[in-house]
Computed example of a mutant assay.
Amino acid sequence: MNQCTAVALLPPPEHVLALSIPGRHRPEAGHVLCELGEDHDETHATMLWDEGGRPGSAVWVRWGAGDARLLPLPWCPARDPRDADDACGLFVGHPSGHSWAVTDPTDEAITRDLARRHPHLFR
């Protein structure tokens, strides 16, 4: 399945702005791209950072109709049946297929173009 193409421009959280040094460069809004498969519910998700792989250490932003929330969510424990070393890169209870079943169409298009231009690198 293809990756969801939802994009959001999110402002920095208020607590981050409050911690910034007055008179210095303040954090700016940034774009996030949904990492879920395109067949998910109305709430999108992007992992922002992981603080060491502990349960609940990955911080995700979940957004939908006009709201966004930062949430510490545990990693999905599922393993790819084709390669047991490949774990799902999404959170527990994610609403779409596991990460190994989600294809980024832009990444795929770039890979096809590079393979066409440089076939010796893609054997």
Rank of each mutant, 00 (worst) to 15 (best):
R69L: 04
A109R: 12
C76L: 08
G97L: 12
L121D: 06
P22T: 01
A6G: 09
A109N: 13
S20G: 12
W100S: 02
L71T: 12
V16E: 03
V61T: 02
G52Q: 06
C76S: 08
G37N: 03
L33C: 08
A78D: 09
G66M: 01
P12K: 13
A18M: 12
P72H: 08
L33F: 04
W60I: 08
R26H: 15
I21R: 14
L121G: 07
N2F: 01
P74I: 09
C34N: 05
D104Q: 00
R112T: 01
R123P: 02
H25E: 15
P55F: 00
P105V: 03
A68L: 10
R79A: 02
P13G: 13
E14G: 08
V32F: 09
G53L: 03
P74Y: 01
P13I: 09
P77A: 10
D39W: 10
W49P: 05
G53C: 11
R116W: 03
R117A: 04
T106W: 07
H94L: 08
H120Q: 01
W100Q: 07
R116F: 01
W75T: 05
F91T: 08
A45L: 06
V16H: 04
A29I: 13
I21T: 13
V102G: 10
P22I: 06
G97H: 13
G53A: 00
L70I: 10
V32Q: 06
H15Q: 11
A84H: 08
V61G: 09
H120L: 11
L33S: 08
E28Q: 15
D83R: 13
P12H: 12
A29L: 12
G89K: 14
D41E: 02
E108P: 09
D50A: 09
L19P: 03
G56M: 00
R117T: 05
L19F: 13
A87V: 09
E42L: 12
L73M: 06
H118I: 05
A8W: 15
A8E: 15
D50E: 15
D83T: 10
R24A: 10
G66W: 04
A101S: 05
L71E: 15
P105I: 00
D80E: 13
P74K: 07
P119G: 05
D41S: 03
A68P: 07
L70D: 13
A65T: 05
C4A: 03
S20R: 13
D80H: 02
D80Y: 11
G37M: 07
L17M: 04
